[in-house]
């Protein structure tokens, strides 16, 4: 890790220089209330004051909702060709929790079998993070993802009239030297950064206490009433999964091309909240009802990967809370689990 300073008066030039060299994807205002990450052509298109974007940017770029994996000819002579589209890209202005979400996906797609479709895109992606504004439902500081330790090339923190820049990779150092006027950080800058980090942590309105959740969850696991109560209003629409930066379940399907001479194998995002998620041939459903599915979503987010990777797979971005039509709220449910145990 290297530490540098970028004066705010040089910031615009830096962004425009990046745009001239890379396809830059950055937050854009797309309506009165909504922001989303899109490729930009000039500095002015970008709006870094966003509080949240509907879709997590890294997932959108690295793990598209529909992706062709292979194409083949059919008939007497079958030939299969793997499909893998990737290009050099730069993601600008992404918040720490979304970088941590991407780090989680990196781990998923590179563990055991290596998913080249994801990894090729990931290797070609440069990431420049920023201390983004947390939305009202954001509880990243409660799950330890308000700070990104890795996964970025550069990370910018606003310390008044300049940015304190953490350089995370060699590629990041190259970007800094090539495209911007980066200076060495002074002792004053370091202490300004320290103060800023303390202030930043206080920007998160929601604080969730996950102490003992790991054990408590085990205790309430079999309490059918609790889960039925929590999942009562669930429509099984899957919105929570679609907007989640760490949800990665997908279906694999084969389709025949319209000329009947070949086919495509592709994958689509799936959702563990949808009724046929656990359905197998023959009609048995391993996840038959809303209560069971909600419970297993929480298990996946807050327990499974603590056991597997030593981390929550929830980064606390709050998107699922804001996307849920039935107002199901993960941190209220965490509290409900706590209450149930204390009774």
């Amino acid at each position: 890790m290297l530490y540098k300073i970028l004066d705010k008066k040089d910031f615009k030039d830096f962004v425009n220089n990046l745009i001239s060299a890379y396809e830059v994807t950055a937050p854009k205002k797309i309506s009165q209330a909504l922001h989303d990450f899109f490729p930009i052509k000039s500095y002015e298109e970008m709006d870094l004051s966003y509080k949240r974007t509907t879709l997590p940017p890294a997932k959108k770029m690295l793990f598209p909702s529909n992706e062709a994996l292979a194409s083949y000819t059919v008939g007497n002579n079958i030939e299969v060709k793997s499909l893998n589209e990737s290009k050099e890209q730069l993601l600008f202005g992404v918040g720490a929790w979304d970088i941590n979400g991407m780090n989680f996906l990196d781990r998923i797609f590179s563990t055991d079998f290596i998913d080249e479709n994801y990894m090729e895109k990931r290797k070609k992606l440069k990431v420049i993070g920023i201390d983004a504004e947390p939305s009202d439902a954001n509880f990243a500081s409660s799950v330890g993802s308000e700070f990104a330790k890795e996964g970025f090339d550069l990370f910018l923190s606003d310390i008044g009239d300049k940015y304190f820049v953490r350089i995370g990779t060699a590629a990041g150092a190259e970007i800094a030297s090539k495209f911007g006027d980066f200076l060495d950080a002074s002792d004053v800058d370091y202490s300004a950064y320290d103060r800023q980090m303390d202030l930043y942590k206080n920007k998160f309105n929601v604080n969730v206490n996950l102490d003992n959740f790991f054990e408590n969850f085990e205790i309430v696991y079999g309490k059918k009433d609790l889960w039925e109560k929590l999942a009562k209003s669930c429509f099984s629409c899957g919105s929570c999964n679609l907007v989640c930066p760490t949800c990665f379940c997908f279906n694999v399907r084969d389709d025949i091309k319209i000329d009947l001479a070949g086919g495509i194998k592709s994958r689509q995002w799936d959702s563990c909240m949808i009724s046929n998620y656990g359905l197998v041939a023959g009609g048995h459903n391993f996840r038959p009802d809303e209560a069971n599915r909600l419970k297993q979503r929480y298990r996946c987010k807050l327990k499974t990967f603590v056991e597997k990777f030593g981390q929550y797979s929830c980064v606390g971005c709050g998107r699922c809370v804001e996307a849920c039509l039935a107002k199901i709220n993960i941190y209220e449910d965490i509290n409900a689990v706590k209450e149930e145990v204390s009774i």
Binding site: I108, D112, C249, K303, F305, K308
Partner: peptide
Amino acid sequence: LERRMECGVGKCNHCHIGNKLVCV
């Protein structure tokens, strides 16, 4: 054990039971 599997190589996550993947 039997579970729904989409990919068979530990990526699609359908066959997970807690911290285990049936396919892997």
